[in-house]
Design a protein around this nucleic acid. Structure first.
Length: 572
RNA sequence: CGGGGUGUAGCGCAGCCUGGUAGCGCACCUGCCUUGGGCGCAGGGGGCCGCAGGUUCAAAUCCUGUCACCCCGACCA
């Protein structure tokens, strides 16, 4: 690549609308441009990075035995109606009509389409297992896209779907995919952590996310400091908690707490720490029930855990009117004592004494609440979000550390969630018709590129891992108008290209300072400076983007040495 | 969807309150100079001031509407 012939519109200043580092740097490096909310152009260098990720994904998926296909981006509504998701998916699904007024959607994921392929073409257990994948543009009309490529509405995704005769084989493939993902992200030069996750809207029984640890990540995860256990905070099981029981039992008292609604307000008003509070959240479920969820004042509810416990498809916080009806009080004064209806409580509340709770009467709270005495009939379960310091459920003595993460991949064990309603069945060896067991496996390709920048940058710009870099070597002649330098640069450029190395040659008649700044910004791993002083010594200067200092490299041997370094770097 | 903010040259911004010929830095073009970390000098081009209405002798500026983008929230009592 010659710089002058390539569209690389670098910017000196951060774009005004970028928040996170990957967004700022990718825009500044001239790799992407926003064209609409959550929708981006990929310019030449940005596209090259995306293609690198895709190619690594493709090679490893192929190696795992999966087959690449390409499904349509625009899908007919019928398939989505069949699975029931046409009505369930909500506004994230971009819907449209064709000229005949038929309904279509821009596929945000392709379970329906792939299941349709397989049910039509596969009849026998002899044809299974089968893993089909595609690398394709997806669209999800996110409520709030942000952070550049990290949470775009349009994005490139690798999505794979596997079909099996039974659960054992599906679980086997799940492990194969987990290994494949490990290799993919390793090859991308990314440090990822597989964490247990909720199965969410896609549905299914078992799921892991692959998280790139980064402070800017949108996901909160915890990992054990002693064992391998790691999970999304919404899903993480919490080990046995120390009892929060304390103090002697005093008679229940009702106290006046005018206008004090939040834990914070009441806590300050009564001079009691939040740990002594019982927080009462009223939820409604898709079954139309109202359920009270109790938590310790300093804890946060995991709606996912609540949903799972209740066996509900969704739960939502009750509105003020419902709260009024159920508690007889304004919002802010709900409590477990005297509350009608179902009550579920976080396990941390079991046995709590001398606690504070709403009195179900506007402007009043109870103090000296004793769980066993005052609301003994509640169901206890693990309901809260995990956080730093919580005990690990899988080992003895381990505690959680909290992290932020960027979810770059996920694997789901789906079971028969789609194969049953869509009748993707096969005949087993006994001639019995059975639904296929399914798994699905996604990787956010464009998000992976952004995550790589989040994980690899400094104050001067991007530091691409070699396998994802838009080029391997960046040649910077100090003065392009100097014939000696230009000649040496052209020679090295030609030699490296002949050796199969990807090179960016800065042939601009810019001052050296500008070229160095741009080189740092672009983040190509090997920079070769060609200058007068060096040439006098018969040398180029090699600077790795990761290093502060340059080293001499004899002109005669430069192409060979660089080729070797790139090959070594790519093979590890 | 609710709240807040911003739309002025390619990018980053000032001007708006208090109406009166549209500015700054960078980038761009020409020439000279310079060439090892975003040089210097001189000259120059570029704007339906997001869009549509309204008020006014006069609107980037005031009013109404609308569109786009950004931030916060959209559950935690």
């Amino acid at each position: 690549m010659r710089y002058r012939q390539t569209l690389i519109p670098t910017l000196k200043q951060d774009p005004a609308d970028a928040e996170v580092i990957s967004h700022k740097l990718m825009v500044r490096a001239g790799m992407i441009r926003q064209i609409a909310r959550g929708i981006y152009d990929f310019l030449p260098l940005g596209l090259r990075v995306v293609r690198k990720v895709e190619q690594i994904v493709r090679e490893e998926m192929d190696r795992s035995g999966a087959q690449e296909i390409l499904m349509p981006a625009i899908c007919p509504a019928e398939l989505w109606q069949e699975s029931g998701r046409w009505d369930k998916y909500g506004k994230e699904l971009l819907r449209m009509k064709d000229r005949y007024e038929r309904d279509f959607c821009f596929g945000p994921t392709h379970e329906e389409v792939v299941t349709d392929i397989v049910r039509r073409e596969v009849r026998s257990y002899r044809d299974l297992p089968m893993n089909l994948y595609q690398i394709q543009v997806k669209f999800r009309d996110e409520m709030r896209p942000r952070f550049g490529l990290m949470r775009g509405r349009e994005f490139i995704m690798k999505d794979a779907y596997s079909f099996h005769v039974d659960a054992d084989d599906c679980n086997r493939e799940y492990e194969v995919m987990a290994d494949t993902y490990k290799r993919i992200f390793q090859r991308c030069g990314l440090t990822t952590r597989p964490v247990e996750s909720d199965t969410g809207a896609i549905g299914g029984r078992r799921a892991h996310e692959f998280q790139v640890l980064a402070d800017s990540g949108e996901d909160a995860i915890v990992s054990c400091n002693k064992c391998e256990y790691a999970a999304n905070v919404e899903k993480a099981e919490i080990g046995r908690e120390q009892t929060t029981a304390s103090g002697t039992t005093n008679p229940l008292r009702k106290v006046r707490t005018p206008e004090k609604r939040t834990i914070e307000e009441v806590s300050a008003f009564l001079a009691e720490p939040p740990e002594r509070f019982i927080k009462t959240l009223l939820y409604v479920t898709n079954h139309g029930d109202t359920v009270a969820a109790l938590l310790r004042g300093d804890h946060e509810l995991s709606e996912i855990k609540l949903r799972t416990l209740l066996g509900a498809e969704w739960v939502a916080l009750a509105d003020a009117e419902t709260v009024q009806k159920v508690t007889g009080a304004d919002v802010g004064f709900a409590g477990p004592i005297g509350l009608r209806g179902r009550v579920v409580a976080d396990q941390a509340l079991q046995g709590i004494r001398a606690a504070v709770a709403g009195a179900n009467e506007t402007d009043f709270h109870y103090v000296d609440v004793d769980q066993a005495r005052d609301f003994g009939s509640a169901t206890f379960a693990d309901l809260r979000l995990a956080r730093t310091g919580d005990p690990c459920p899988r080992c003895d003595g381990g505690v959680f550390n909290g992290h932020r993460g960027i979810e770059v991949g996920n694997i789901f064990y789906l079971g028969t969630k789609y194969s049953e309603p869509m009748k993707a069945t096969f005949l087993d060896a006994q001639g019995t018709e059975r639904p296929m067991e399914m798994g699905c496996y996604g990787i956010g390709v464009t998000r992976t590129a952004a995550a790589a920048v989040e994980q690899n940058h400094d104050d001067n710009g991007i530091i691409w891992p070699l396998p994802l870099a838009p080029a391997h070597v960046h040649i910077v002649p100090v003065n392009w108008t100097d014939e000696r330098m230009r000649g040496a640069a052209e020679k090295l450029y030609g030699d490296l290209r002949n050796a199969g190395i990807e090179v960016l040659l800065d042939d601009r008649e810019e001052r050296p300072g500008s070229k160095f700044k741009d080189a740092d910004l672009l983040g190509i791993p090997f920079r070769v400076t060609i200058g007068g002083k060096g040439l006098d010594r018969g040398c180029f200067e090699l600077k790795r983007r990761t290093d502060a200092a340059a080293q001499d490299m004899p002109v005669a041997d430069a192409a060979n040495q660089l080729t070797e370094m790139v090959r070594t770097g790519l093979s590890t």
